Structure formats: structure tokens, C-alpha cells
Amino acid sequence: MVLKMKKSMLNVITLALVLINLVLTVILTFSIVSTTKKTDNLITKVAEIIDLDVGGGISSNNSGSSLAVSDMETVDVKNSDDSTKITLSLLDSNNKIHYAQVSVVLTLNKKSRDYSEKRSSIDSGMQLIVNNVNTVVSSYTYDTALQNKSNMEAELLSKLQNLFQTDMIHSVAINLVIS
């Protein structure tokens, strides 16, 4: 009889431990799912901020949408003398002048609805583009220019899209050499 009571008591303890384990597993599962959703949302927001393509595929450096290579056209920004190097002066924190050579390449979306009508305005408005490059790059100091190249590209993209009133300009790539 004592043996049966001990066996019964062990069964009750085992059942209690199984129920406790089940409750703790449910609690753990709900807390992990909740945390995982929050983490996924955070990663998505951060990826959008730094402009990564979370869903995979091709991502341009300044735009959130993908563009096939066959739909792209690149245009070198040129000075009035047809050189692709734009020379600017940048001040450092000690007000010392440094010179920067800037090359800019625009990527145009050939599938854009206004590509045919706006494409010629890009060539004819090249000096306006050069002026915008000067304005954007000169707004940075020597100390901050290289660290903020992606910000420069995004700012220049926005200015050019507003200037030409089109989203045909898909991205801007800046090559910056400072001496």
C-alpha cells in the first residue's frame, strides 16, 4: 500500500511538472513571437532608413525601387568645357582651404513615363546640374564630406528631381577626391 501511494504521488508530481512545463512553454512562445515581431519591424525600419532592399533583388544607391540594367542610362555630368571633373574648394574646421575634384554620374530610368520629353532637358540643363553639384558638395566641410557621401548623393538626387520635375533621374553617384 505504501508502494502504491509512493507511485501515485510520483505520478501526481510528474503530471504537475508536465503542466508547469506546458505553461512555461506557452509563455515563452508568446514572448518570443512578440519579441521577434518587434525585432523584425525594427530591422525593416532601419533597412528603409539606410535604403537597403529587404526583399532582395537589385537596389539602387538612392532609390527604394529596383531597376533593370537594360532600363538604365548613365549620363556623366560635364562642365562647359566638356570635362567630367568639377573642382571645388572645401574648408576644414581650421578654415584651411582644400580642393575637391567631383565626378557625378546620373542614372536615368528609360522606362519612366516622361523619359522622352525630359531626356533632352538633362543635356541642355547640364550647367544647372553642375551648379547644383557645387551647391550640395560645398555645403559640406572637408572634415565631413567623405563620411557623408551617401547624404550628398541623396540630397543631389532630390534637388535634381525637383529641378527637372521628374522621377526619371533614378540615382546619383558621386566620386569625390579631396586633397
Score class of each variant (00 low, 15 high):
Leu42Glu: 03
Asn41Glu: 08
Ser179Lys: 05
Leu52Pro: 00
Thr74Glu: 11
Tyr142Asn: 06
Ile129Asn: 08
Val136Gly: 02
Ser139Thr: 12
Ile178His: 02
Ile129Cys: 03
Leu88Asn: 04
Ile49Glu: 13
Leu10Ser: 12
Ile20Gly: 04
Lys7Met: 00
Leu146His: 03
Ser31Cys: 07
Leu52His: 05
Ser70Thr: 13
Thr29Phe: 06
Ile178Lys: 00
Ala173Leu: 11
Ile86Arg: 01
Ser83Glu: 15
Ile43Tyr: 14
Val177Leu: 05
Leu90Glu: 05
Gly125Ser: 00
Asp76Tyr: 15
Asn151Asp: 15
Leu3Ile: 06
Leu3Lys: 04
Thr144Val: 10
Val177Asn: 01
Phe164Asp: 02
Leu160Val: 01
Thr14Leu: 13
Met5Cys: 07
Asn11Cys: 05
Leu157Gly: 04
Lys38Cys: 06
Ala68Gln: 10
Lys110Cys: 10
Ala16Cys: 08
Asp71Lys: 11
Asp143Phe: 08
Lys85Leu: 10
Ala16Gln: 11
Ser93Pro: 00
Val133Asp: 04
Val12Phe: 14
Leu67Trp: 14
Leu160His: 01
Leu28Asn: 06
Ser66Ile: 15
Asp114Thr: 07
Tyr99Trp: 04
Ile97Asp: 08
Ser8Cys: 09
Gln147Tyr: 07
Tyr115Glu: 02
Ser70Tyr: 13
Asp76Asn: 15
Ile58Tyr: 13
Asn175Tyr: 07
Asn41Phe: 02
Ala145Gly: 06
Tyr115Phe: 01
Tyr99Phe: 06
Val172Glu: 00
Glu155Asn: 15
Lys37Thr: 05
Asn94Glu: 09
Asn109Lys: 14
Ala16Val: 09
Ile129Leu: 02
Ser121Trp: 07
Leu156Ala: 03
Lys110Ala: 13
Thr25Trp: 00
Ser179Gln: 06
Thr29Leu: 09
Val12Ala: 12
Gly56Tyr: 11
Phe164Gly: 01
Glu153Arg: 05
Lys7Cys: 01
Asn62Met: 12
Ser116Trp: 00
Leu90Met: 03
Ser31Gln: 01
Val2Phe: 03
Leu106Phe: 06
Ile178Ala: 04
Leu19Glu: 03
Asp81Met: 06
Asn132Met: 01
Asp167Gly: 08
Asn131Lys: 10
Ser103Thr: 11
Asn41Trp: 03
Asn131Cys: 03
Thr36Val: 04
Asn41Arg: 06
Ser66Gln: 14
Thr135Asn: 12
